[in-house]
């Protein structure tokens, strides 16, 4: 693994993602409470926390699905706090959803093709895509990268749950992602599928950083090099996986007795 200094100089000085005092209110409920966090380019971080800790709300604030009530979000130095979601995506931000949001009536390839089209020009093209288009080729490669070539032409509604989770990841890898938010990608997967997921995540190019929300500590600690612990909408602790695992407060709150 390259040193922190090397990676910083390679990607410039700006953080991939920087949150300053980000809060999100739903009525009287404070879902995010003054969250400040920064993630370097290429850094891979896990976000842990119990249900309702604000992890998915954090993702929704970053992608603009539900913009923050206050605070500033910077993406590679650019203030994106009030950008519409599609503008953030076009700048290289990606996300997956906890409950797959896919297009069930379209084929696997068409789903991935749409994702590729969304971050390239020609979104309004009235021409049909051809098999030898560059964009269709990259969609085909992407389907292969997430091990779905065998079901490429199948309608997404007919896929197994695990296959849908893999497709969810393929959509996030379309185009030139610089930073990805994975929302519980391993949830509901069989052990074999989890291994496949870990392999897919580990084989991502080094310059792509991500934040992963994951309850499965085996997965989270194998694919992340730093950990943020959330509780009641706040960042409770940050550190390396080893530090977080050995932290007593964290153990009491989340890991219970001796799980890690």
């Amino acid at each position: 693994m390259a040193s922190v200094a090397e990676r910083l100089s390679a990607a410039g000085t700006a953080n991939a993602l920087e949150l300053r005092g980000v809060s999100r209110l739903f009525g009287a409920l404070v879902a995010l409470d003054d969250v400040t966090m920064s993630v370097r380019p290429g850094e891979r971080r896990a976000v842990l926390g119990s249900n309702g800790a604000g992890k998915t709300t954090l993702f929704n604030a970053v992608t603009g699905d539900f913009p923050p009530s206050s605070g500033v979000i910077r993406f590679f130095g650019e203030d994106i706090t009030w950008f519409p979601p599609h503008e953030r995506i076009r700048r290289g931000l990606r996300r997956t959803y906890q409950i797959s949001l896919l297009f069930g009536d379209l084929s696997v390839l068409d789903n991935v093709y749409l994702a590729c089209r969304g971050v390239s020009r020609g979104r309004f093209s009235l021409l049909r895509p051809r098999r030898n288009d560059a964009l269709m080729q990259s969609a085909i490669e992407l389907v292969e990268a997430v091990h779905l070539s065998a079901v490429r032409e199948r309608l997404v509604a007919q896929l197994s749950y695990g296959e849908q989770r893999q497709l969810e990841i393929a959509l996030a890898l379309a185009g030139a992602p610089r930073f990805i938010l994975f929302d519980e990608p391993a949830a509901g997967l069989a052990p074999g599928e989890r291994a496949e997921l870990v392999e897919i995540l580990s084989s991502l190019p080094r310059h792509i950083g991500y934040i992963i929300i994951e309850h499965d500590m085996d997965v989270a600690l194998r694919v992340a090099e730093s950990v943020s612990m959330m509780h009641n909408g706040r960042i409770l602790k940050e550190g390396t996986p080893a530090e977080i695992e050995s932290d007593r407060e964290v153990q009491e709150l989340y890991l219970g007795g001796g799980h890690g």
Binding site: P84, H86, Y97, L102, A115, R123
Partner: peptide, 9 residues
């Protein structure tokens, strides 16, 4: 919502 998250306006 997903289309927005894929970069479509």
């Amino acid at each position: 919502r997903r289309m927005e998250a894929l970069g479509f306006n």
